[in-house]
């Protein structure tokens, strides 16, 4: 039954995260608005040629996602920082990994909802033609979101408590996301274009492996990182 207790703790942390002022409706709207703004700026900077925009669509959506997500990740630890709640959270009985899992779950939900809107806007602004293989595209998106949230939450747990959180989180996170970005972007472009399916499937397998490796690695490392 300890399992059920842990799972309840995970859900409680996630729920708490998602309902605070910073992350509630206003916070969500702000982060999504930022993502859309970035898309607009990219459209202006790379356009107006429709063909150029269509080629840039995948990259633009991912960049808008990355920059907006960074904000979301830092904020997911900010509440505890301001109220000193992190210490009390650590004092509660129960395994540490549930804190990490709770944060992950909260961020996963937040970022997924955010990406859904950013992708929709991106498809419209950049004139993307939706192919028959769109379910696979959604799968790639999902795998990408998982990797992004895992590493983002992990690095944010440190960066948000350092002296330079705004610059430190992207500086630490973005180089680590290179394989994820390459895999998601290249596979998506392959599916949107002439679609050499075997090309996309290799990248999808890389993405899945990447997600698994870092999910395990960050879970193991979180123990060492969360102590105040």
């Amino acid at each position: 039954m300890a399992w059920r207790e842990d799972w309840r703790r995970v859900r409680a942390i996630a729920r708490k995260d998602l309902t605070t002022e910073l992350r509630g409706k206003a916070g969500f709207n702000a982060v999504v608005s930022l993502g859309v703004t970035i898309l607009v700026l990219l459209g202006l900077a790379l356009g107006p040629d429709a063909e150029a925009l269509r080629n840039a669509a995948v990259g633009a959506v991912w960049l808008a996602t990355l920059f907006s997500a960074v904000l979301a990740f830092n904020r997911s630890f900010q509440v505890e920082l301001e109220s000193g709640a992190l210490e009390s959270l650590l004092q509660y009985p129960g395994p540490r990994w549930t804190i990490y899992a709770g944060k992950l779950l909260g961020n996963l939900i937040f970022v997924t909802l955010m990406v859904a809107i950013v992708v929709a806007v991106g498809v419209v602004l950049f004139g993307v033609r939706i192919p028959d293989t769109w379910p696979t595209l959604l799968g790639i998106l999902a795998l990408g979101i998982v990797g992004l949230v895992v590493l983002g939450t992990f690095y944010a747990s440190m960066a948000s408590r350092s002296r330079a959180r705004e610059v430190l989180l992207p500086l630490l996170l973005f180089p680590m996301l290179v394989p994820l970005l390459l895999a998601a972007a290249t596979a998506s472009k392959a599916l949107l274009g002439a679609d050499l399916m075997h090309e996309a499937s290799a990248w999808i397998r890389l993405l899945a492996a990447y997600d698994l490796v870092f999910l395990i690695a960050t879970f193991l490392a979180f123990e060492h990182v969360i102590e105040a």
Binding site: L182, A183, W203, L206, F214, H224, V225, E227
Partner: peptide, 25 residues
């Protein structure tokens, strides 16, 4: 020390993955 060690270890894990993905790319 703890954070650097975690970041260093996890960063190092990524090095071969980065190489592989950029080479495929």
């Amino acid at each position: 020390a703890r954070w650097s060690a975690a970041v260093g270890a996890i960063g190092a894990i990524n090095v071969p993955i980065v190489y592989m993905s950029v080479t495929w790319w």
